[in-house]
Design a protein around this nucleic acid. Structure first.
Lengths: 194, 194
DNA sequence: CCAATTTCTTAATCTACCTTATTATTTTTT
DNA sequence: AAAAAATAATAAGGTAGATTAAGAAATTGG
C-alpha cells in the first residue's frame, strides 16, 4: 500500500514524527471504489472521511425532482465526506460515488476522535482543511450571486482544466447549477465568439 | 469588561484552565461599533476575527451592480470575519457593518497564531467553528438549489425568529437572494394563505 | 416636530434559465 | 460489431424571480 501521497498531503500543514505516522497510518483503511459504486448514499450516516488516492469522485444532492446537483468533485489528493452528516450524525443529504475507478483511504469518525486526543496536531490539520472548505464554499456562493452561468463556466474551465477533460458536460452543468441543454447553448456561443 | 459570554462560548467546545484564560483574555480587544459603522470594507485585508458581544452585524457582498448580497448575519455569540481574506491575506470581498450599535471582541491574526502555539486547544475550538461554518454554508447552498424563495423565507422565519424582528425586510430579502419587491409579494401571499 | 430619507407595497413588463421534445452522436455493454 | 444506453445539440415555449416605476408608510435626523 502506497501512503506517500497521503503523507505528503498531511505534511502540507503539519509535521509528524515516526511514532505519529505509525499511529496514524493503520487508521486509514484502503478501499477501492469501482466506477459508479457509492461511498455514501443519501439517508445513511456518514461515519468516515476519505482521502482520495486515485480516480475521481463526486458528491451530489438529489433534489425532489430527482435531479443530481453536484456539490463537489473530489479527485486525487482531496478529502471528501458529507460533512453535515459526519459532523452531526444526521442522515446524509449527499450521495458520493465514483465517476471513474477510484481508490481512497477512509478514516473512521471514532478513530479520528482518538487521533485528535493522541496526536492533537491533527486538530490543526483538520482546522485548516475545514477552514479551506468553508472559504471555498463561500467563494462559490458569492460567485453564484454575482456572475452569469456563462462566466461561471469560463471560470470553471480555467480553474479545473483537468475536470473538463475527465467529466461529462452533464456533470459540469450539474456542478454549475444549470441544465446540460443550457451549457450546450453556452458552449456553442463561446465557440463562435472566439 | 464583561468576558463571561465569550468564555461561555469557548467553554462550549474546550475547557480552559486559569492560566490559559489569563493568556487568552488580553488578546481579545473590546471594540464598539456604532450603527452603520464598518468592521471591514471590501478591498481591505481582514486581520481580525470578531466575537459579537452585543448588537447585530451583517457581512455582505457588493456585486457589480452595487447590490448588497448578505452572506451572513452575526448577532450575540457569533464569530465573524471575511474568512477568505483572513485566511489567505487577499483583499476582502465582503463588507461587514453594524446594523445596530454593537460591541465585539476582536482577535488579531498574529495573536491567534501565537494562541494556537501556546494553547493548542484553540486549534480544536476553531476546527469546530470552521467545521460548523462549512456545514452551514453547504446546507445553505443545498437549500438554494432545492427550494423556492417562498420556502426559504419560511425556513428563515422558523430558524431565526429573532432576526425577523430585528432586521428590515430589505436585509432579509438580501440574505435570501431575492429582491425586496419579491419578498413583499411572498409575504402578501403567505398572509392570505393562512 | 417637521422634512428628508428610507422602507414597503403593488403592478406591469422583462429576462435568464428551465422544460420538453426531437434528432444526432458517442460510449458502453453484449 | 451490433444493440442499447448515455450524452450532446438544437429549438420552441414556459416560469421564477428581476426590473422599473410610483405611491404609501415608517424612520431618521436636524
Amino acid at each position: 500500500m502506497d501512503h506517500s501521497n497521503l503523507l505528503k498531503n498531511i505534511a502540507k500543514h503539519i509535521t509528524l514524527n515516526g511514532d505519529e505516522i505509525n499511529y496514524f497510518i493503520p487508521l486509514m483503511k484502503y478501499k477501492e471504489a469501482g466506477k459508479k459504486s457509492f461511498l455514501l448514499k443519501e439517508g445513511q450516516v456518514s461515519k468516515t472521511i476519505s482521502y482520495v488516492h486515485s480516480g475521481a469522485l463526486r458528491a451530489y444532492y438529489l433534489d425532489k425532482d430527482g435531479n443530481e446537483n453536484i456539490i463537489m468533485f473530489a479527485i486525487n489528493d482531496w478529502w471528501v465526506t458529507d460533512m453535515y452528516s459526519f459532523s452531526t450524525g444526521q442522515p446524509a443529504l449527499l450521495n458520493i460515488d465514483a465517476m471513474e475507478d477510484s481508490a481512497v483511504f477512509e478514516l473512521n469518525k471514532n478513530d479520528l476522535e482518538d487521533l485528535y486526543l493522541k496526536v492533537p496536531k491533527f486538530e490543526r490539520f483538520f482546522r485548516i482543511i475545514m477552514q479551506n472548505s468553508y472559504v471555498r464554499e463561500q467563494l462559490r456562493s458569492i460567485q453564484n450571486l454575482s456572475i452569469t452561468a456563462e462566466e461561471r463556466y469560463i471560470n470553471f474551465v480555467n480553474k479545473y482544466p483537468q475536470f473538463v477533460q475527465r467529466v461529462s458536460q452533464k456533470q459540469i452543468a450539474s456542478y454549475l447549477g444549470i441544465t446540460p441543454e443550457f451549457l450546450s447553448v453556452i458552449r456553442k456561443k463561446l465557440s463562435k465568439g472566439s
